[in-house]
Every structure is written in C-alpha cells, then in structure tokens.
Amino acid sequence: MPGTEEQKQTFLAAPHFAVVGASKDETKFGTKVLKWYVEHDKEVTPVHPKESEIQGVAAVRALAELPDPTHTSVSVITGPKITRGLLEQAKALGIPSLWLQPGADDEGIVEYINENGLGDRVIYGGPCVLAEGESVLKNVQV
C-alpha cells in the first residue's frame, strides 16, 4: 500500500534528510532527488559507498555514519537487493521514516516491510518525493 498523506508529511517534517542512490551522474533519479532537497533548503546528506561528496554536498558512506539517524528521513533510490539491506540498517538505527523511489521495492521488500513492523515508517509503491513533495510540503507542520 502506498504511503498515506500523513506518512509523507511526517517524512518531510524531519529536521534532516538523507538520499541513498545519488551519484555524480546528474541524469539519475537519486541525484535529482538530492537536488530537490537542496533546492528546498533541506539539510540533506547523500549516502554513497565510494564518494565523499555529491553535487557539492558532503556524503557519508553508510546510514550508520549519519550524524543523527533517529531524526533523519531517508529517500531510497536503489534496486530491491540493496533496498533490503538498507531497510535492515534503518530498522537497527531507529531511522523514523523512509520513502522508496518506484523501482526500489518488489514483492520481497513489501513482505519484509510487513513482517518487520515497518509499515508505518516506509512509504512505497507509488510516486516519489519528486512527484509529490511540493504538494506535501504545503501541508507540513514543522
């Protein structure tokens, strides 16, 4: 089930954001999502295993390196095999909210979300922040 409006508002009300899947390739959706946060003056950190910065923003190599994971909403723009590991890490770190880009999930990911009680924290199965972020931001109480 795609995320509810309330889940999306909670996601965008976070004080910090992270993007997993941004790269030096400006045509990739992960990089477009990173730019969206920057353009909306959001405190954002790219997560990339090899890069120290993307689009002029300092990157960390893993979710565990985020400065404040329990107050960080994470956009996930990866294939399902990588998404599964990210969900496991996010659960262990207490990350409160994740928004999966279309294509980041599959039946196995949805099953994992449901079996691990993450349904209230993970937005999936629908448009991403690029498509819905503007309209959701208008209703966010920060």
Rank of each mutant, 00 (worst) to 15 (best):
72 T>S: 03
72 T>F: 00
124 Y>T: 04
38 V>T: 12
99 W>E: 11
118 L>T: 14
138 K>W: 06
138 K>P: 02
95 I>F: 11
102 P>C: 05
138 K>E: 09
26 E>G: 09
85 G>Y: 14
110 V>P: 05
22 A>T: 05
104 A>R: 00
62 A>L: 12
47 V>Y: 04
136 V>Q: 09
33 V>S: 01
32 K>E: 06
113 I>Q: 08
31 T>C: 03
76 V>W: 08
12 L>K: 04
95 I>A: 07
61 R>E: 14
57 V>S: 11
134 E>L: 15
91 K>W: 07
130 L>G: 00
120 D>V: 06
18 A>P: 00
83 T>I: 02
83 T>N: 08
122 V>I: 00
28 K>H: 11
102 P>A: 11
36 W>C: 00
138 K>L: 03
116 N>R: 05
63 L>K: 11
14 A>R: 06
112 Y>W: 13
27 T>K: 04
5 E>I: 11
42 K>P: 10
79 G>T: 04
123 I>N: 11
32 K>Y: 02
52 S>P: 15
94 G>Q: 14
51 E>A: 07
87 L>M: 08
98 L>Y: 00
78 T>M: 12
45 T>C: 05
62 A>T: 15
81 K>W: 11
141 Q>F: 13
116 N>I: 05
98 L>I: 00
29 F>C: 01
106 D>K: 00
24 K>Y: 10
